[in-house]
């Protein structure tokens, strides 16, 4: 059974169609990387999955539970959206940590607020779990620090721990290293790689091709709002068939020389 099934998803902003008919599915424990040039709709796709944008059409289902169906008319209630969101976690390009809370408080805030309605979050265990997650992120010495006292790489690792604390079915990353200095990307990518090795189900929008190649079970190349090519990293990155993928990857290589 697929953990995520996306069918015929569409999204336009004003008259610009950003996502034009996207369908894909993924299995539990899989890591999918989405690559493509800017403006291809990668970020919008992630934002649709996290209900930060409402798609115009299509279906999103997690474990056969339909979370969104564009053919059902009427806007969803805020409360319904909020609960459906919890199937997904999202790590932002710009971290978006809460500045007035310590690293540890950033991780515990949402679980503490949600534990009344969610039985999987036991109040006594929230703190211990948060500490455990931060330690796994290599931040056991930084738990009491405020975001502005942390480097970008450390902040992003706190953000990953914060997203994991709610045990999402699928963890999404929106260009997690694009806002980082080059020397800090490694520590974040390493952490994500460890998550992949532990079979965390993840969708990663990234520009780091060699990372995508290493970490993914499947790579999706998006172009102009459609999936132009998808397959294993070897297929899509090493031996692309689609002309647009070939052009994108050669531009990427030239840019990195």
């Amino acid at each position: 059974m697929a953990i995520l099934e996306v069918k015929n998803l569409k999204k336009s902003f004003a008259s610009t169609e950003v996502i034009h008919d996207i369908s894909f599915s993924m299995e539990e424990g899989e890591t999918i990387s989405i690559i493509g040039s800017s403006g291809s709709g990668k970020t919008t796709l992630l934002r649709c999955l996290n209900f930060l944008e409402t798609p115009d059409a299509g279906v999103i289902a997690v474990r056969d539970e339909v979370l969104f169906d564009g053919s059902v008319s009427g806007a969803m209630q805020e409360e319904a959206i909020r609960r459906r969101r919890l199937h997904f976690g999202l790590v932002f390009q710009s971290f978006n940590l809460f500045p007035q809370y310590t690293a540890l408080e950033n991780v515990t805030l949402a679980p503490k607020l949600l534990c009344r309605e969610n039985k999987n979050l036991e109040p006594e265990k929230i703190l211990a779990r948060a500490k455990e997650l931060l330690s796994e992120m290599g931040l056991s010495e930084r738990m009491e620090n405020y975001p502005h006292e942390l480097s970008g790489g450390q902040q992003q690792r706190v953000a990953i721990a914060r997203a994991l604390a709610l045990n999402p079915d699928i963890l999404c990353f929106d260009e997690p290293t694009s806002a980082l200095d080059p020397e800090l990307t490694g520590e974040v990518l390493r952490v994500i790689k460890e998550l992949a090795e532990n079979n965390t189900t993840m969708i990663i929008v990234t520009h780091e091709m060699s990372f995508a190649h290493d970490v993914s079970d499947k790579v999706i190349f998006m172009d102009k709002g459609v999936i132009a090519e998808e397959g294993t990293p070897e297929e899509v990155i090493d031996h692309p068939n689609n002309e647009r993928t070939i052009r994108f990857l050669s531009n990427y290589k030239n840019g990195n020389q």
Binding site: L52, R85, N96, F98, L109
Partner: peptide, 22 residues
Amino acid sequence: PVGQYEAGEVLGMTRSQIFFKV
């Protein structure tokens, strides 16, 4: 920044929780 609201939203917080806590 709008990212502060969105971070709260994807963590499943309600609108009033986001306003008062974040």
